[in-house]
Write a protein that binds this DNA or RNA. Structure first.
Lengths: 206, 206
DNA sequence: TAGATTGTTAATCGATTAACAATC
DNA sequence: TAGATTGTTAATCGATTAACAATC
């Protein structure tokens, strides 16, 4: 349990701040104001200061925020100072692409296992991991210390997989299947569905 | 311009309604109440009725909503009764996975072209499209009637690609690069970044 | 008719913004 | 010191929810 309740929208924005602070750091900057950050993120300086103030005073009046210090604080708040083990279920096109995506490793998320139903894929290597039989998922995943699961199976099987994940204690699920998963309230699901985003954009087109 | 202004959050939810209505239809249902829909989508019935009421009265008191009729209306509102041509920039792992993803075609989005910088990939076939030279993007993309662009290049090149897309008249961009793109206000950008979602989830873990 | 569920209004809730004193 | 920018409060804005009359 956290000390004070912080709105979920605020938590959602912290990774964005980290991303932009990283960028500024790469560009050689060491201090940034809420105003500059706001320009880069299309947010008001007020909102940024308010968000950060939820966690204490990170800035210095007249100067702004020390980029390294702020980034370290945000990483600590989000529990990012450790390697998180991730498992993937479903080694189709998207699954394979994610295994090969280096953005996870670069940011402290390690895909340690991938499970599949298709016998033709089990035992084969994708990137540098060997595809496992989904039959063994319920035993193997907890043994490996996995805390985050990524669902990349077809929509029809997603809920069943999700139920199994919940049962073995997974509390964070990144879902690429085009389904709204039903989970207990202590389990978090984040959905990624490019079709939904496109269907939204077409409203504004033409 | 639309008749009345509808909040963007509402528009974002319409594709979700369509998704769930589709599912109910596949399950053989023909009518649904705001209450049932709410249970499937983790929303209050009030919110669903309010969202839909923005566009007129689709339901029938005492009965609920005719699924086919409601779906048709929502598809019309979102301009989904046409095939939208999509181009992809960057044929790396994610780009290739998206070309092979059938969810786009099934939902009326056709990837008609893919552009790459890497000479080793230009001219090669991925799925059933031939990878084009990014040099020719600015001429070829408008000729093909593309209205939506998907950016799957590395973060460093994303803004430059984005600028070119804006210049040739693209108004809808789905961005997979881990960067906050700067665009004029009449251009819509939707970001997909699994790392940001994971970094949010770890806040609640441990 | 009785029961169910919509469409809509008013009340509530929560998030964003503006403003400014504090302070580096 | 003068200038800049934070942290914080109060005001505003907008979205969500509850409630209920209308109506199928």
């Amino acid at each position: 349990m956290k000390e004070t309740f912080i709105p979920d929208v605020v938590i959602s924005r912290l990774p964005l701040y980290i991303q932009t602070l990283n960028r500024l750091l790469r560009e050689g900057k060491s201090v940034v104001s809420s105003n500059e950050l706001g320009l880069l993120l299309d947010m008001t300086p007020s909102q940024i200061r308010r968000d950060l103030a939820n966690f204490g005073g990170f800035g210095k009046q007249g100067t702004g925020y020390d980029i390294i210090k702020l980034m370290e604080s945000l990483r600590e708040i989000l529990n990012l100072n450790q390697i998180w083990k991730v498992a993937l279920i479903g080694v189709g096109h998207i699954g394979q692409a994610l295994i090969n995506y280096d953005g996870f490793n670069r940011n402290g998320f390690e895909i340690v296992a991938a499970f599949e139903h298709n016998p033709g894929k089990i035992g084969k290597k994708v990137g540098n991991i060997v595809v496992r039989d989904i039959k063994n998922m319920d035993e193997e995943m907890p043994e490996m210390g996995v805390k985050i699961a990524v669902i990349t199976v077809p929509g029809e099987s997603a809920q069943a997989i999700c139920d199994r994940l919940v049962k073995i204690g997974i509390r964070s699920i990144l879902n690429y299947a085009p389904v709204n998963l039903q989970v207990p309230e202590d389990v978090q699901v984040e959905n990624i569905d490019p079709v939904l985003k496109m269907q939204k954009m077409t409203y504004y087109l033409q």
